[in-house]
Design a protein around this nucleic acid. Structure first.
Lengths: 215, 215
DNA sequence: CAAAATTAATCAAACGATTGATTAAACTAA
DNA sequence: TTAGTTTAATCAATCGTTTGATTAATTTTG
């Protein structure tokens, strides 16, 4: 059966994802990846063609899990614009805080000028979520529940930027928060709910017209 | 005179800063740097000891320009907490949008696990600004002009995160904003004022108690 | 079925190229 | 001359990749 083969390729991709994430593309040697994965070096080229092929494969694997995430929330007619947005925030925070090291990897590679093929691919992945949020903002403005002079583009930058800031630079965010954010327990039990609450309060204050800020 | 020597060192640092920023530490070879700077490869080691020494020198040079930036605003007694914060935002946006490629470089290196010595140094640099903002938040809460349940840590993450998101991933933010953000004219004349306005409205809505959101 | 032929998977070893670093000689200016 | 710069040449180490050989699995053939 080719189950084992798939498992092995998947195992290599797991290891590669972590090492690329920790050391960057150039910093991660094929020897280190194959060594840590417990496979012969040549297997990387045998399976993935090249180092770049392996790198792209790490991304390809994740795309599907990103495509269908915030979908269908926007089409629910019975919810208010704000409730939909709040639900999106909850979903988003739940999801992105786990894929931690892949998120880091993605953000780092986005900031590198060369490898434009990869940049385009990542842009495409990220844009799905960006547009999903933007749609909600536009809808809320249109039906009058959100402020008309909302900067829908920069508020999107705030949503993703706040998350990235916490995830991408664990040193400084750990120092700021007074806890090691790589502590899974803290992340899941304390930080996640806190980010959700904060995000919703921030967005509500900025967006919603009849926002009662005493509540 | 050693003026020429300083100028040459400075020129090398300029080139190194740009190449490190574009390609990352591992991706930038000493040959590429020396080649583009128009100096012999051995000069890098002669001046800076090693590649890492050069890398650190790029940072050392910038530290001083970061130390004394938001200072003294917090100590002005005649301004309200909000006015001080608004002034800090203006100063901050004015400053960080120019140092563009160094910011990118700094943020990328912060997200890499090894090179902890550098991480600590960068953390130290960034913390100055973080603490400056935090002081203003705490003051505003203390004197009753800001909401008591303000999450001073996450709102700080939002300020820096929003900026980083725009600067670090020019591909996606250009796509989002409908303009190439590497266009200096657009950056200076359009984006800067827009970010300032947005940031202040966002923070005011979230922080200030008697915020009149019709204005 | 079993033997033969073919394909797939894995390995150690080595490849050429590039890396950061060093050397010793040449050059420059006081 | 002498001390400070700059250069070309060279170093060992490491990079990603390729090779040829070997084993395991699968398919084909009689």
């Amino acid at each position: 059966m080719d189950k084992d083969k798939i498992d092995k390729k998947d195992h290599i991709l797991d290891v590669a994802e972590r090492i690329f994430s920790d050391l960057g593309y150039e910093g991660a040697s094929t020897r280190a990846i194959s060594g840590e994965a417990g496979v012969n070096m040549a297997m990387l080229n045998y399976y993935f063609g090249s180092k770049e092929g392996l790198f792209l494969a790490v991304f390809e694997r994740k795309i599907s899990s990103f495509q269908t995430l915030l979908q269908n929330i926007g089409s629910n007619e019975s919810m208010s614009s704000w409730d939909k947005l709040a639900k999106c925030i909850d979903n988003y925070v739940d999801r992105i805080i786990v894929n931690n090291c892949f998120q880091k990897l993605m953000n780092r590679e986005m900031s590198i000028s060369k490898r434009s093929e990869l940049s385009d691919k990542i842009t495409q992945i990220l844009m799905v979520n960006v547009l999903e949020f933007k749609k909600l903002f536009d809808e809320g403005i249109k039906n009058g529940s959100f402020h008309k002079d909302t900067d829908t583009q920069l508020i999107t930058a705030t949503i993703f930027g706040t998350k990235n800031y916490i995830i991408n630079s664990p040193h400084i965010s750990s120092l700021m928060l007074g806890h090691d954010i790589r502590d899974e327990k803290f992340l899941e039990e304390k930080l996640k709910p806190r980010i959700k609450k904060y995000m919703k309060r921030l967005l509500k204050a900025y967006l919603v017209k009849d926002n009662d800020d005493t509540k």
